[in-house]
Design a protein around this nucleic acid. Structure first.
Lengths: 186, 186
DNA sequence: TGACTCTTTGAGTAATCACTCTAATTTGAA
DNA sequence: TTCAAATTAGAGTGATTACTCAAAGAGTCA
C-alpha cells in the first residue's frame, strides 16, 4: 500500500465499514457488504486488510481516538474530561461500542493478541484516570489513586455494557453519579 | 414433554450443553456436538427445545439460580451474601458468564424478548441489592438505596466483563473493594 | 386392545461466510 | 520508456451452520 490508488481504496473500505457497522451492526457488516458499498472486490479488500476484524478494529480505534480529550498525552485532561469523553463515545457511537465489546468477549480465549491489546488499552486508560485524579488531588497516594481509578473505569465499563442491553439507559446520568461519588470519597 | 422418556432426554441434553459450554465455549457448542454427547438426534433436540439458544439460556439460568443465597426470596440475604454469590458464579462458571454476556450483547437490538428478560433480570437484582442495603442501614431512603444498589451492580458487571477479557483478573478482590467503598459512603 | 399423544429417527435443506488465487492491469520512479 | 511493484478483478473454495419434516416407534390411559 504505497500508491495513491491503494490509499483511496483503503479509505473507501473504512468508510463503508464505518457506516455498515453503525447501521447494521456486526452481523450486517459482511465482506460482501463492505465490498459492495466501497465499490471494490474481495481481492482488493484482502490486498489492504488481512482480515475483516482488522478493518473493524481500525474503525473502532479511530472512533475512540476521535473523542480523546488529550490525544498527545500532555497530561492536561481532567477526570471529568476523561469521563465525558467516554460518555461521548458511547452516545455518539453506540454500535461501535457494542462491536468493541462483542469482539473482545468473543475473542477472549481464542485470540490472545487481541486480548492483550484490550488489556493494555484498559491499563492505559486506568493510568490516565489515575494521573488525572492525582493532578486534581495531589494528596492522594499513587496506589490509592490507581485503585480508585480502576474501580471507576470498571464501573464505566459496566455502564457501557448495560447501555448495550438497554438502549434507553441514561449513561450520562450514571457516569455523573460515579464522578460525584468519587469526589465525595476523596 | 409429559412422558418420562422426554424428561430424561431433556436432562441428557442439558448436561451435554453444560459440559460443552464449560469446555469449549459458545462456538464449540453446536447442535451437532450437543446431540452427539447426549446420544440424541437433532429431531429429538428440537422436539424438546425450540432453539439452541433456549437450551443454553436454560443452563445459564440454572447456574445462576444455583448460587442464589436466598432462592425463595425471604429477604434474609445480606449485601455481602449477594455480592459473594455473584463472585462465586463468576469464579465457578467463567464460561457461562461469558456466554451470558455474549448472548446478551449479540442479541441486543435483534432479539427484543431476550433483551427484555435481561433488563428484567438486572432490575430484579438491583431491587434485591437495594433491599439488602436498607435492611442493613434502615436510615437509607428508598431512592438512595436504589441508586447505590444500581451503581454497585453496574460496577460488578464491569468486573465480570473485565474478567472475561483478562482471566487473571482478581474478581474477589475488586468486589471486596466495592463493598468496602459502599460501606464507607454510608 | 385401541387410540391418542409424545418421542425418535436421520437424511435433507438452504443459506452463509470469510477468505484465496491467478492472471490482468495500473502506477510511478528512474 | 521501462519495469518491478502495487493494485484489481472475480470466480471459486470449502466448510459449517441451525434447523426441518414426514414417518416410524414407544408410552400411557380407557
Amino acid at each position: 500500500m504505497r500508491y495513491k490508488a491503494g490509499l483511496e481504496t483503503r479509505e473507501r473500505i473504512l468508510a463503508a465499514t464505518r457506516s455498515l457497522v453503525a447501521q447494521n451492526g456486526l452481523d450486517g457488516t459482511t465482506i460482501k457488504a463492505i465490498c459492495e458499498q466501497a465499490g471494490v472486490l474481495p481481492g482488493s479488500f484482502y490486498n489492504l486488510f488481512t482480515s475483516k476484524e482488522q478493518a473493524i478494529l481500525t474503525v473502532v480505534r479511530e472512533a475512540i481516538d476521535a473523542v480523546d480529550p488529550d490525544p498527545d498525552h500532555h497530561g492536561t485532561d481532567t477526570l471529568e474530561d476523561l469521563v465525558s469523553a467516554y460518555v461521548r463515545f458511547l452516545e455518539e457511537s453506540p454500535e461501535l461500542s457494542r462491536v468493541y465489546i462483542r469482539i473482545g468477549v468473543s475473542g477472549a480465549g481464542s485470540n490472545p493478541e487481541l486480548t492483550g491489546r484490550m488489556v493494555r488499552h484498559h491499563k492505559e486508560r486506568v493510568g490516565r484516570f489515575a494521573a488525572a485524579m492525582r493532578r486534581q488531588s495531589p494528596e492522594l497516594s499513587d496506589s490509592l489513586a490507581e485503585r480508585r481509578a480502576e474501580t471507576l473505569v470498571l464501573a464505566l465499563n459496566g455502564i457501557a455494557l448495560h447501555r448495550i442491553i438497554d438502549p434507553g439507559f441514561d449513561v450520562a446520568w450514571h457516569a455523573r453519579v460515579l464522578l460525584d461519588d468519587a469526589a465525595a470519597v476523596s
